[in-house]
Computed example of a mutant assay.
Amino acid sequence: MHYAIRRILGIIPVLFFTWTIVFGVIQLIPGDPVNLMLAGVPASAEVRENERRRLGLDRPIIERYVTFLGRALRGDLGESYRSRQPVSKMISEQASSTLQLAAGGLAVGLTVGLLLGMLAGLMPNTWVDTLCMLVALAGVSLPSFWIGMMLIYVFGMTLAWVPIVGSGFSALILPSITVGLFVAGGFARLVRSSIIDAMGQDYIRTARAKGLSRFSIAFKHALRNALIPPVTLLGIQIAVLIGGAVVTENVFARPGLGTMLVEAVLNKDLPLVQALVVYTTAAYVIINLVVDLLYGLIDPRVQAGRS
């Protein structure tokens, strides 16, 4: 409990540091925010000054910085220059699509990656190991847009098993596979190496001497002790997925935070860019905290060491 409290309190300086960098970088970007908001529409100096006052740009930078931190804690980071809508509302409208894709890709990646890694780790240096690692290497190496287009051509157009675009579970299958194969590739390779290392430990030899079945040894003893490195990688992958699989979203014409971020950068919509980066960094830090706390649940020795 004390360790969890310390880690939660440790989030505060990390978020403070990252959000400070975000604010500073946005301030260094050249260009007048009022001109970006007006998007070339002619306006008098009085109108520009009133708009600058409404945005708070006439105040000192320190005051704007304190206001920014306060709004970030409340989840209010201003209005979009382009749509004039609150950026928090715009992000919340797109977040569900990104979270659905992240959850689907994670489910595919975990299932395929764990299966390939376990098979390869339990039968190292065999044809099964070679085949599993070839599939994992292909998932990591092949570009997402190519995998997506092949899935669209085969399962969406030729066989017509699932829809290519749209909403609902059926339209999520192909994008989830596209994202999940990349997650599965790295996850499978790490599970394999962890299983091979765990199977050579003394407690595995003791379990064999007791006459335990191969299944029991693999899943009750080896897998649990081999999960910490893969879970660490999984935490990073989840953060990347929440940040948005931009290529996959564009291939399948899906809305999402990744596509929104690209469009915001191209349109120089600074409040929206700033809000997306702030929320993404917060999600990344929180996910890493959750992964760190999971170590103690997976391996009691980690919890004992922390105590």
Rank of each mutant, 00 (worst) to 15 (best):
R192K: 13
S213W: 04
L77I: 08
T158N: 12
P13K: 12
L151N: 00
R6H: 02
S170D: 13
G70V: 08
S96V: 13
L9M: 14
V278M: 02
P163D: 03
A245K: 06
V231L: 14
L233M: 13
S176E: 01
L266N: 12
F182D: 00
D58H: 09
P42L: 06
M150T: 01
P124K: 11
P13Q: 06
F145S: 12
T67V: 05
F23S: 03
S307Q: 13
S213R: 12
S97C: 00
I177C: 07
A107N: 06
L234N: 09
P230A: 03
L212A: 06
T178Q: 10
R189L: 12
F252H: 01
D76P: 06
L174T: 00
G40I: 10
A282C: 09
D292M: 04
G113T: 06
L137Q: 11
D197C: 03
A43V: 11
V165L: 04
L261E: 00
T178M: 08
W161E: 04
V14I: 13
L116A: 05
A275Y: 00
I11C: 13
V247M: 12
L122Y: 09
G200K: 05
R48D: 10
I228N: 14
A171Q: 11
S144H: 08
A45I: 08
Q201A: 14
F16I: 15
M157I: 15
P13Y: 10
